[in-house]
Design a protein around this nucleic acid. Sequence first.
DNA 1: GCGTATCGTGGAGGATGTCAACGATCGGGG
DNA 2: CCCCGATCGTTGACATCCTCCACGATACGC
Lengths: 142, 142
Amino acid sequence: MTWSFADDLGFLMSRASGVVVRATNAALAEHGLRVRPYSVLALAAESEEGTSQRDLGTVLGLDPSQVVLLVDELVERGLVERRPSPADRRTRLVVATAEGRRVREAARQAADAAVEGPLALLGDAERERLRDMLTRVWTAAG
Amino acid sequence: MTWSFADDLGFLMSRASGVVVRATNAALAEHGLRVRPYSVLALAAESEEGTSQRDLGTVLGLDPSQVVLLVDELVERGLVERRPSPADRRTRLVVATAEGRRVREAARQAADAAVEGPLALLGDAERERLRDMLTRVWTAAG
DNA sequence: GCGTATCGTGGAGGATGTCAACGATCGGGG
DNA sequence: CCCCGATCGTTGACATCCTCCACGATACGC
C-alpha cells in the first residue's frame, strides 16, 4: 500500500528525523541525557574557553530562553559551569567540567552506536550525499 | 566556521525537517491549517469511503489520542465527518466533506509552493535519491 | 459463550517551540 | 563624555506535541 505521503519530502524528513532522535534519546537515557541537553553539552565541550549562551542558541537553532533552562540543568548536574566573559560582562561562557567531558564522550559513543540501527541501510557514500543535501536544505532557509 | 554538529546526520535531519515544516506551516496558515491537521485531512481525502482513525494514526505516526483531537478540530470546521463503519461498530471512518476537499486542494498547492524555497538547491534527481534514502531510514526502524 | 485483543476516547505529564518583556551591559554618534 | 539603540541572559506565558495509562464498547478466536 502506498499513500501520497510516502513521497512527500517534508513528511519523510520528519519521520526519519523522528526515528533517529528517538533512537538517540534511548541511547542517551543510560547517561541521564536527552538529545537537547546533550547537544548543548557537546558544543560547550568543543572549546576550552567555553561558548556564550547566545552562540549555543544560534548554532543549535534554539531560542535563548531554552538555552537558559538547558544550561541550568547541566550546571545542576555538574557537567558544565557558567563563567563570566573577560571581554563582555553581559555574556556568560558555558564551559564543560572534567566530569562533563567524560559523560559527553561516553554519551557520544552510545549515540553513535544507536544511530547505526536506523542508518544501517545507508552506505558511507550515501551518508555523505545525504549530509550534503540536508545541509543545502538547511542553509537555503537562512 | 564549522562544528562537530554540521556533519551529524541526526542533527541535520532535525534542522532540515524543521525548516520544511516551518515553511509549510506558514503557507498553510492562510488556510487556517497546520501540518498535522492538514496531513489528517489530506489522508482522509485520499479515499471516498473514508479512513479509520486507527489507520490515520498508524500511517502518520500519531498516537490514537492525538488523532481524536485532530479529527475533532476538522469536524468542528466542517472539513471532515465521522461515519460509522458498516463492517465494525467500533471504528469510525473519517471522510472529507466537499468543503474539506476544496480546502485540502488549495492547501496542497500552497504547501507545495512553500516547500520550493528550502528545496530550491536540490534537483529532481537529487530529490528522488533523498526520498529513497529517507524511506530506507524510516523503514529500517519498523 | 468467554476471554482476549482492538477501536476510540479522555486525561496526565513532560518536552518543545515561540514570543514578549525586563535589567544589565555594550557600542557608537554627537 | 553622555545618551540611545542594540545585545545578552533571564523569566514568564502560552500553544503545540509526544508518550503513557485507563476505560467503555465492540470484535474475534477458541
